[in-house]
């Protein structure tokens, strides 16, 4: 295997809160090969978005490494990051708060071009903006519109055009479709996939929606409370989930069926435990149907249960 485009090694991000250390990302190891898509799934508050932002150095990691093309960029300051910023971009979940309400569509997309000095002179910049708008399927008549005048799907296209403006290699998609209508979701997903095949982009696709993640990713990482509990290629995950949490997630996908399903089958009980100063042992132990003494005492690491299939669970050690 060649060097992955993005790799994290034991990446940690703790937030200092008045009630203790919040372990948002707690020792995550992932790697993404160029041109692939890694789907990151997990419920709200499990640290998916923090992971994405930590990789981009928008949030400084507490410890661990972030390797970009084999180069450790963790802890780089803004000056050192300057040359790498162009290669890594982010698409946000909320198409309302991710666009400055006082700027026109054209200025929003032109801004990264100006910041990175990719083109000079307004004529050249605006020509490029028009090209980008065309790429993401925005009619050029919207160039002088303000974000609030457009619907969610179009706004998300602006966000995508802004991310593409600097010709990045890697894009963190932070739940880019979860705020959109289902019909629009499909359009945006198809757009993202077309862009990937045209430009050879690499995605980290953060979502809580398993049907979306199956559609778009090559590999999936399942996160629970700041830790990656299972990592495998996406087909295999749906065929043979190993971690009890993954099984529960898959069982929770609603199936449109006329006959009522047996209620509660495989649905996990309880709530996510507190991420502030978590107890040692498996984070999922308190909700796990298969939990044993061992799960409560020792930290579990990802082990290769079958070729290319990593899981952090006492059942498979």
């Amino acid at each position: 295997m060649s060097i992955p485009l993005i790799e994290t090694r034991n990446l940690k991000k703790y937030f200092d809160t008045p009630r203790g250390m919040l372990h948002a990302v707690d020792g995550v190891n992932i790697s993404i090969q160029a041109g692939n898509t890694l789907g990151v799934v997990g419920e709200s508050g499990c640290g998916k978005s923090t992971l994405g932002r930590t990789i981009l150095q928008l949030i400084k990691p507490t410890s661990g490494e972030v390797l970009y093309n084999g180069q450790n960029i963790a802890g780089y300051n803004e000056r050192q990051m300057a040359s790498i910023r162009r290669d890594m971009q982010i698409i946000f979940q909320d198409p309302f708060s991710s666009l400055n309400p006082r700027m026109t569509v054209r200025d929003i997309i032109a801004e990264p071009i100006r910041v990175c000095k990719l083109c000079h002179g307004n004529a050249e910049i605006y020509e490029r903006v028009n090209k980008l708008m065309d790429t993401v399927g925005l009619a050029s008549r919207f160039e002088n519109a303000y974000p609030h005048e457009l619907d969610g799907g179009r706004r998300q296209r602006i966000g995508i055009a802004r991310a593409l403006a600097v010709e990045p290699k890697f894009i963190v998609c932070d739940e880019p479709v979860s705020a959109l209508d289902v019909s629009i979701q499909a359009q945006i997903l198809n757009l993202l996939m077309d862009l990937q095949s045209d430009m050879g982009l690499t995605y980290m696709f953060i979502t809580h929606d398993l049907s979306v993640v199956k559609h778009i990713s090559n590999e999936i990482a399942v996160m629970y409370l700041g830790q990656c509990v299972e990592r495998v290629n996406s087909d295999r995950l749906f065929e043979n989930p190993l971690h009890p949490y993954t099984k529960a997630l898959l069982a929770a996908i609603p199936i449109p069926k006329l006959m009522p399903r047996k209620r509660g089958a495989g649905i996990i009980k309880g709530e996510v435990s507190n991420p502030i100063d978590p107890k040692p042992g498996c984070r999922f132990a308190s909700r796990c149907p298969n939990a044993s003494e061992r799960c409560l005492s020792e930290e579990l690491r990802l082990v290769e249960a079958e070729p290319g299939h990593f899981v952090a669970c006492a059942l498979y050690e």
Binding site: R53, L56, L58, E78, M81, A82, R85, R86, M88, Q89, I90, F92, Q93, D94, S97, S98, L99, N100, E111, P112, V115, C116, G159, R162, A165, V166
Partner: peptide, 13 residues
């Protein structure tokens, strides 16, 4: 707001 983060992501100071 996210647009501040977007600006930081493209290297704005």
């Amino acid at each position: 707001q996210d647009y501040i983060e977007a600006a930081r992501a493209c290297g704005m100071r």
